[in-house]
């Protein structure tokens, strides 16, 4: 995959190598999208197959329509309620993004504090791991009691869930820099701020982004759980109401929209990743990220 330029190569070979190098590095949004299009047909095909199975189950009436609505009916529900679904999607998307952005801000601040202060590190890191053991979703009802039915408790619960992967990946990333790099920076006369901005932070990006991708999907989960517990808006609420009315077509429709929202947010983070660090190996090769 990676093109190696050997020491002995002749001048004629160099031009071509230069071209390869440029193509491998400079990435516009267009090339990233083209890459997705060329990589995306396999999973799309698999999705179509699943869609076919779904259709088959409803077509031969393996399950009654009030349990499993057909794909056509689900689609009809989506196109017949565009305003309703859209408005609720916007609410959930807003909660998710707000929580994600806050988790990045606070997570990075915490990671920086832990990397630069051994006291903070020794105090906060064990607590952080301990806090991860607490099922934060279980706190959602408490937040509703404290903060009411507005957006704040949803953002807070999503923030709590998304915070952990950001702070851990940021912390690991910032510590991943080769000590020789920092020595090098010293010989260049770099101060602490330059060392951070020019060396430590860029070196942390590969780790950080793998955490951000996990965080953004967890933020969606957090927002929906928040809506489950107490709300009158958002896709979580749509699902609850549809459930109550045994309107499985709407329930399926909301699930599909919700999944689409998660996918779009995930791809957005990945797009930023590819634009910010086209040089990184995990971007050059196909990247696999696990989310839990």
């Amino acid at each position: 995959m990676t093109h190696l330029i050997s020491d002995g190569e002749t001048a004629t070979g160099r031009d071509q190598d230069g071209v390869t190098a440029v193509r491998g590095r400079r990435r516009s949004i267009g090339t990233v999208l083209a890459r997705w299009a060329s990589d995306g047909w396999r999973p799309l095909l698999a999705l179509l197959f699943l869609l076919f199975i779904w259709w088959l189950i409803t077509a031969i009436e393996l399950a009654p329509p009030y349990l499993v609505p057909s794909p056509q009916e689900t689609w009809r529900t989506i196109v017949e309620n565009p305003g309703y679904l859209w408005d609720n999607t916007v609410v959930t998307a807003y909660e998710t993004l707000a929580a994600f952005v806050l988790s990045v801000v606070f997570g990075l601040l915490a990671a920086v504090a832990m990397v630069y202060s051994r006291t903070v590190e020794k105090t906060a890191y064990p607590l952080l791991v301990l806090a991860q053991v607490v099922p934060k979703i279980a706190l959602a009802p408490l937040f509703v009691v404290w903060l009411g039915f507005g957006l704040t408790p949803k953002i807070l619960i999503a923030l709590l869930i998304a915070f952990f992967p950001v702070v851990v990946s940021g912390y690991v990333g910032l510590r991943s820099i080769d000590p020789e790099m920092l020595d090098l920076a010293s010989t260049m006369g770099a101060g602490p701020i330059q060392k951070f901005l020019r060396f430590r932070f860029p070196a942390s990006l590969p780790h950080l982004f793998s955490g951000l991708k996990v965080a953004v999907t967890l933020a969606v989960t957090g927002a929906v759980v928040g809506e489950f517990v107490g709300s009158n808006k958002g896709l979580g609420n749509v699902i609850l109401e549809a459930n109550g009315n045994v309107n499985t077509a709407l329930l399926f429709a909301a699930l599909i929209v919700l999944s689409a929202l998660g996918v779009v947010l995930f791809l957005l983070v990945e797009l930023i990743e590819r634009l910010v660090m086209p040089w990184h190996t995990t971007v050059r090769e196909a990247s696999v990220t696990t989310t839990s």
Binding site: T2, H3, L4, I5, D7, R14, G18, A21, V22
Partner: peptide, 16 residues
């Protein structure tokens, strides 16, 4: 190194 100015480090051999 002429000709490699715009290459990324990972595209170079150890000697380069």
């Amino acid at each position: 190194l002429a000709g490699f100015e715009d290459a990324m480090p990972h595209e170079l051999s150890g000697g380069m």
